[in-house]
Design a protein around this nucleic acid. Sequence first.
RNA 1: GCUAGCGUAGCUCAACGGUAGAGCACCGGUUUUGUAAACCGGUGGUUGUGGGUUCAAAUCCCACCGCUAGCUCCA
Length: 736
Amino acid sequence: MVSVLLPDGSRKDYPDDSTPLAVAESIGSRLAKAVVAAVVNGKVVDSRRPLVESAEAAGTDPAQPISLKLLTDRDPEALSVMRHSAAHIMARAVMRVFPHVGLAFGPTLPTGFYYDFDMPDPIREDDFPRIEAEMGKIIAEAETFDRFELPRGEALQLCADLGQALKVQHLQTGLADHASLSFYRQGEFVDLCRGPHIPDAGRIKAFKLLSVAGAHFKGDASGRTLQRLYGTAFFSQKDLDAYLTQIEEAKRRDHRVLGKQHNLFHISQDVGPGLALWLPKGAVVRGTLEEFIKHELVARGYTPVYSPHVGRVEMYETSGHFPYYRDSQFSPIFGHPGGSLVDRWITLLADNGLNPGNERKFLEFAPFLDVKIDNYPIGGSVEEKLAALRSWQGMQERYLLKPMNCPHHVQIYKSQQRSYRELPVRLAEFGTVYRHEQSGELNGLLRVRGLTQDDAHQFCTPDQVENEFLETVKLVQFVLGSLGLDNYRVQLSLRDPGSDKYVGSEENWQRAEASLRRVLTDLQLPFEPRAGEAAFYGPKADFMVKDCIGREWQLGTVQLDYNLPERFQLEYIGADNRAHRPVMIHRAPFGSMERFVGVLIEHFAAAFPLWLAPEQIRILPISEKQNEYAGQVEQALKGRGFRATTDLRSSKVNAKIRDAQLELIPYMLVVGGKEAEQGTVTIRDRLDPEHQQSIPLAQAIELFQTEVRERKIRQTKKVPEATGLHGGEGVEENAY
RNA sequence: GCUAGCGUAGCUCAACGGUAGAGCACCGGUUUUGUAAACCGGUGGUUGUGGGUUCAAAUCCCACCGCUAGCUCCA
């Protein structure tokens, strides 16, 4: 007998081979019908798998009372289980519709699932109806999902017999240390899978294929392209419809659409991809934010600086940025016509990619580009050749469009001798940097090639690090809070101990990582450590903010750096009259102005609060007779620093109101004969048009001033986080 | 960068082998208006670029550029 402990505290004994489904049956047949999966001793498992087995699989002692929670369609965990099963059903359908389908992975996502297929021809959206129809048939048949386990050798044989090469490969790599593997069979479809699954296909009540795109097996871009088919599934048609509606609504907030509609920014093919043009209205939003942050920085002891947009390549070689990120930078600017020839020459030599034939061609071609390297040792070693080429290169000008501000700020720090008394030195700049992001990554303002960081670098003593870091995190929190961006999480990005892409000593890294942890813990700010996400010079705390479509963007970041001071030989004179090495903190609360404004456009759906609105107030004269008075009102508002215009068109006030409303102008001031006579204005509030008040102009100005001063956020339209729509996170780790 | 899809007027879209069209915007005129669109008229496109097939190409084919989704990357 097994002893089962239910969530209500009751305990009951069942026969040894009982399953959660059997327990449910004993409670009631309606419950049994509703059961989708179960949680046994804390682990989500199949409802048709014996309790004892599940308890063992959970690493617990089945002799002890087994805690059991039955999952029905009301539990979010059940949704994930069902979607995983839906992925299997989709795979089964795809295999029926297309020949020669190889299976890769098919995990769940917070809003659905996907499955990767290796197949000769790509799937097209036109194919969706056929696949969906086949899925519908499978679901209607409501066959069970049957789990079975095989020892390693037999599992390999089965996958090989099924012709599933990728599964075989996965068994031999990712699952190399598993002695026994589980499979699920559903009709003719058998798949290597960890599970769990729903009892039968009939539990899926609503599903839809969403999109298809290329993907790579285990994320390896050098491998062949798989077809990743995305879908979603719900326990009711109503939930599916709600989800689809939500996606539609989110699309309407797309900053690229709103940016165009409201003339905020423009990305012109003629300027170049990823290079944003700030239109006057967008420029107001950005400028206002810049003023806001600059004011905060000065109050917190930062000193503004400026630095040029280019710098010598050598400087970026010292910092490490050039060698580490060369591929994602714009090409260097060479002062000599043969600069890029020699550069290529050096690269090939250093990579041992230069054969004698090519070397001869380089030598022949060099004179045409005016490159004279008389001492090139044709018969010499690679090192000697490199030395000769580098010596030539060293005499030429090479500039880089700056990919980062830190080396420039480092030079500002170094421009004078520093005493411990003046630390921390906090240098701030809205620095524009250029990165040649991959073309497929560009995305409106959210991912661009020219961006302005609200950057600053703090140089401090090792003792000051934690307090500086603490204050900086508080600044980021303040800034995000001021804009009502509260949907964010903090990620502690650490180095991957197994990788060699990092610079600096073990000791420095440990110190830096420990400091970050301590401060975040002291602040009681929940954070998730993520190995392998650090910058090459140091660990960082990243603020990941969610946009309206649920995508996450890294905005603010605070990075701790013991390494650049080392590389640039930075010093300060300590109280002991000896030279010491400072520590650097890199930080950008907004990240970049481009991305930040992009996220804000979606966050506010372009309906900015008064203090940020490109046009704050529009004056609407009823007829041309009031144009003069309207002009006086406009002048009075402008004199108080408001962004106001007057609608002087000859159209009716109805049309003027409609346009102002659609343009999301926070306040309209209607002025007719009455107002002109009495020196008043009638305020029409965009958010509350029903309650209008006619008050003296001076009084209206006071109201607006208060709202701006307090940076009031009166309404943030939020896409509802529809409850019951989302399952848990996808299958992680060694999911198979 | 890779895979797939898509590029028609300032914007949103139609025409899908047979002389490129609508609404909004814009311009001109009439109207002088009290809370989400007054009326009349007009301008505007060698259909992303360059080749090709065809009697004929926005439409079919190729290359390039750009955009979108996903993948890979992100100092």
